[in-house]
Design a protein around this nucleic acid. Structure first.
Lengths: 311, 311
DNA sequence: AAATCGTTGTTGATTGAGTCAACTTAAGGC
DNA sequence: GCCTTAAGTTGACTCAATCAACAACGATTT
């Protein structure tokens, strides 16, 4: 799919770009009163944060001209900030490193930029600042190297339930055209979950990657003795295929077994195909299917069951 | 409050800044192959989007040197891109405008940058792109001119309920140290609201500013005939004092009266002082107070009542 | 062994953005 | 009239940025 040029997203990103260069571009420009150019500062930063890169390395990551880089490094060397050494594998390559003087100089520069940015942040109200940082984190994550932080499963904390209801509803509305009925169902389930929560026999997990909620699952006691229900599994679409769902289900099964349940059941809908695969791989079997009309659609409800294999 | 320089927020914003200059800075630099510098492009942009600004105007908004600006404008004039006219009020001021040639040149330039940005966006998955745009919108809003968009009251749409539960819980946990009990209460209330929703006698409003949810309120029928309840009023802290709460309460009262209720009551807690002021101004009177232990705290519950003055 | 090619780094030459300071031109205030 | 302030121009200088040519070295080919 290709965007047309007058797509609103393009306009939004351009507006952002413009604002950013107008506001913060200056923050860079000469880092007021520092003796270093933006490019020089970027080079110093790379030198300080990498392990003896060669000039060619810097050229590629910072996208600067070879000539300019060569001269800049020479200036740095003249000022005693950097030194070049021999590359172990021979060749013309020269690993470059900061001298002690270079390190202290860089530290002072860092100090200045941090102060400048701190001053900028101080002009914002706490709420605004938090929103700004959250937003820039997202931009960094989306545009940044897709290192893909580690998956973390954690307990519930206040605000999670509302967030889950919100995200699940939005997802199911977008993907399957369901209506608000689902939101009420989820809200009801979670309200009951908290009200009658038995920490010894029930649990919930939130999956996080880089501090962002990317999935959740609930283990709830059922009416029938020895039977637990797995409920409200969901995984953010853009993190699917990274094992988030499997990890959540595994945690749920493990706990159910540890607590002493004999059977784990779950109710889902046939349209939720990616979830279905996760259940199958975890060993669940389809025990019942029945059409129903809910959330504004004709659906096929499914009951899946897993024998936890204990007396 | 002043931030220390090693505050994580500073680090986050710096990381963002670095990433941004590395990734998108190039997008600016020379807008590859265009004959215009970044500064020149910015000047052209301002000329195209403003009504005949003077050189001094440009100088202030773009933060460029007078000399540089003067020379750049002269170059533009030589190339036939801009023309200067007489300022109606006399003086040395010369309003500057693009010539037809300048307009078409600028249009071509725009086309290029849009294509470049479109190409960048096309490399992202749809979900990622949406997250990116949402994030940049927030940055623009926080750093941008605090024009403060218009307040919009709208109906409920799917996902709103979860969002409200999430935000209210986070706020009350942060501000008053309440626990998850509140989240369950809110989820239960809203689940019931949807399940037994009577469109003729009940309603809900979401307050939005610039597409962001900044508050909400619910009008719910009570057990007692002729009596309606106002529930779950909340306003985002950073938009308080802009009449959001008052507008929500006013909408609620108006509808309650229109539908034919005789009395509007609400239950709140004494610690919620900003809400209290809104109720007082709207004409509510405190009818009952009783201590209770909820949400992990000792609180004083209050019942407020408003006579809608109809037979 | 020689020729070729790709990579790495240096140097020359040129352009023009960016900066500081001096100066001109107009308007308003007293 | 004089002084102050703002707007715009011009001169002089620095140096980042860019292009192109070239030297050094390894790897590959012939």
């Amino acid at each position: 799919m290709t965007l047309t040029n007058d797509h609103p997203d393009v306009a939004a990103l351009r507006a952002f770009n413009r604002l950013y260069t107008n506001r913060l571009g200056l923050l860079n420009a000469h880092l007021d009163q520092s003796p270093f150019t933006l490019t020089e500062a970027r080079i110093l930063y790379e030198l300080a944060h990498r392990d003896e890169p060669t000039a060619a390395d810097l050229m590629r990551t910072l996208q600067v001209d070879r000539a300019q880089l060569s001269r800049t490094l020479k200036r740095f060397a003249d000022r005693g900030l950097v030194e070049k050494s021999e590359h172990p594998e021979g060749g013309r390559r020269q690993p470059i490193s900061l001298t002690p003087v270079g390190r202290t100089t860089f530290a002072a520069l860092e100090q200045n930029t941090c102060t400048a940015i701190g001053a900028l942040l101080d002009t914002l109200a706490p709420t605004e600042r938090r929103r700004l940082i959250a937003a820039t984190d997202i931009v960094s994550e989306v545009l940044g190297e897709k290192a893909g932080g580690a998956l973390l499963l954690r307990d519930l904390k206040p605000g999670d339930l509302g967030w889950i209801i919100h995200r699940q509803t939005v997802l199911y509305v977008e993907e399957y055209g369901w209506n608000q009925e689902y939101e009420a169902l989820a809200a009801g389930i979670l309200a009951d979950f908290v009200k009658s929560f038995d920490p010894a026999r029930e649990a919930a997990w939130i999956a996080e990657i880089d501090g962002r909620i990317v999935g959740s699952i609930f283990l709830v006691e059922s009416d029938k003795s020895g039977v637990a229900k797995l409920r409200l599994l969901y995984v953010e679409p853009d993190t699917r295929g990274r094992g988030v769902g499997a990890a959540l289900v595994a945690a749920c099964i493990e706990r159910a077994r540890a607590v002493g349940y004999e059977t784990l059941v779950l109710w889902t809908n046939s349209v939720l195909t990616s979830a279905r695969r996760i259940y199958e791989r975890a060993g669940f079997t389809l025990t019942e299917e029945a059409p129903h009309h809910s959330f504004g659609k004709d659906l096929v409800g499914q009951t899946w069951s897993l024998d936890l294999g204990q007396a």
